[in-house]
Design a protein around this nucleic acid. Sequence first.
RNA 1: GGACCCUUAGCCAAGUGGUAAGGCAUGGGACUGCAACUCCCUCACCGCCGGUUCAAAUCCGGCAGGGUCCUCCA
Length: 443
Amino acid sequence: MKIYNSYKDKLEEFKPIHKGKLNIYVCGPTVYNYIHIGNARPVVFFDTLRRFFESKGYKVKFVSNFTDIDDKIIQKAIAEDESELEISEKYIEGFLDDIKTLNCKTDYIKPKVTDYIKHIIEFIDELIKKDYAYNVNGDVFFRVEKVKKYGALSNRNVDDLKSGSRVDINPNKESPLDFTLWKKTSEGINFDSPFSKGRPGWHTECVAMIDDIFKEQIDIHGGGSDLKFPHHENEIAQSIALNNHRLAKYWMHNGRVSIKDTKMSKSLGNVILVKDVEEKLPLRYFLLSTHYRSPLNYDDEGFNMYIKEYDKLKTTIKTLFIKLELAEELTKVEVTDKEILALIKEFDGALEDDFNTANAITSLQSLLKIANVNVRKKPDYNYFNQLLKAINYMSYILGLDIEMERLSEIDKKMYHDWQIARENKDFKTADNLRTKLTNRGIL
RNA sequence: GGACCCUUAGCCAAGUGGUAAGGCAUGGGACUGCAACUCCCUCACCGCCGGUUCAAAUCCGGCAGGGUCCUCCA
């Protein structure tokens, strides 16, 4: 299995730290609004990654946080005249509802900043003790230049960063590069700490959570490419300072989603919320149609393509399933057909090549074609079962799996009656039954 | 101003040195009671110019166009 490691900017063979285990952390949302399709990309991608690892027998420990302390949450709370807690709870729920509709698993570990304050304070305290952080009138900053390899992830050097800096210099900082670990404030939710009454800085929560949950370096840390700098760089700096490792062995960053070739952002008002897209699974299909590191452009017209593609997948599964059900032949089988096995191998190979979902989808499409050609031929039920099993496997990994409901005796009779009516050229009855069967989702 | 990335058919998208996967759309056909579904066929000199090489979409340089990041703003 090859993974593109953003830390080294190259493809590397994946070797888990512990055999058969995968420890992974993905930066989660700041919960002050419903998520848009750009926010959904990493969620869908890493869910797919998880499914693949699990199918290969890995025991996956998957963690993704909720940032529930943030200026934007405070502003939203004021704007909507609700408490910050109400806001964050509302959008955490919204987030989970949204990703469920995208068929993402939600049974992962979901730490919230507010639940980790104690640990974060201890974490910062340790950094101060080790002289990697300093307290100025209650604000605690991280001493960036003390970390020799700072900038290794995002390919920056400290001198360039200093000269390229375009923000106002905070006079309390020793260096403009230093970032806030703890912010003294009385605005919004705040907490008592040895440093001051305030709240933690954004860059410290993820490291502190990882430190507490995993207690060691993790295999993969993921997130959007826009988080590479400064967020992930700062996480690494803290981890090096405290634990002398770069937090994760492999760093993975997904590309951004744009709309009509323009960056999707709230300030431009061009966001598309997940909850507003009616065709959820075609959306997932779309998000996986391009390699995760490439930018992805959304437009309404192009999106129809994915609706069609998804419908084709659904139709094929349904056709095979119904054939097998009507013949009372739906059983568990081993896949032995060479052609099918080759496609499964091709599919796995694509995913083992830095999760090339675009190529994996191609393998699935090939399989669908074979299924559609053969399902109309003289029935070979063992073969049909094999086809269905293979399609189900691939679509499950991609999170595009379709659960079919077993047919009732009434359904089966209706289907047979339809066929008889057609044979008898009783088209009125036939069309009537066809409509009923369609409504039942059988046709 | 600095760092980095991208440019493949009408559209989406693989490919990273050996003469362009796949999908959608288009056009033609098969199947069908009519449909739908499905299948078959059709569809590209890889932004432009130069260089390296026996050989380049793939490597190097220049140009044009597009994009991301540059520290609390999260």
